[in-house]
Amino acid sequence: MTVPAHAYDPEAARSLIVEVSERSGQNLLACYQCRRCAAGCPVGEETGYVTPDRLIRMIALGDRQAALENELVWRCVSCYTCGTRCPNDIQTARITETLKKMAKEAHLEPLRPKIADFHSAFLESGVRWGRANEMEFMGIYEVKGALRSMKKKDFKSIAEELKTQADLGLSMFKRKRMHMGLQVSAGRKEIQRLQKKASQKKR
């Protein structure tokens, strides 16, 4: 853990665990660290020392920064294996999903910007047109990534990304797996109105 015992702040810890519990709908206090979640996590090899049980512990200890900026929050694939196996029914994927949103609200640079870009590009396309348009949101996702790399003057990764996507795109095109037309649902207006109302309420 990143917070040493003498730095423990009960008030900060309480507010963090209450916020995450309420927003994710999970009872984090029920975790008794059996680590069944850690044993089954498919991305365990990618997330370093942060396993679902340890993420819950970080939150209980009030380490806000560590909870918002770690590999598990960003690389969790939301497969729901940990939550399905948890003897106390804690769905950690809902916790990582909540922490992603909290990181965004705190204006933190996502640890894995590509993952954040993808999900927002997808959802924005779904709300903008009423249906997710693969070609459009993938295009926006790629441009966002290229702009980020350009800021860092990382031209090598732009070239690599372009080549990967061009290869996949070409083989999908050949097999008629790409759809060029725009899919639209007239009912998107209803969704957009709901979104607007919900965001006004938040403020």
Binding site: K101, F118, F122, G126, S185, L194, Q195
Partner: peptide, 19 residues
């Protein structure tokens, strides 16, 4: 309309229900 898929739950909990 689009169901929001798994992305909605990561970006906006309200839309994840409304869509």
């Amino acid at each position: 309309n689009c169901c929001g898929a798994t992305s909605a739950g990561k970006v906006d909990d309200f839309l994840a229900m409304a869509m």
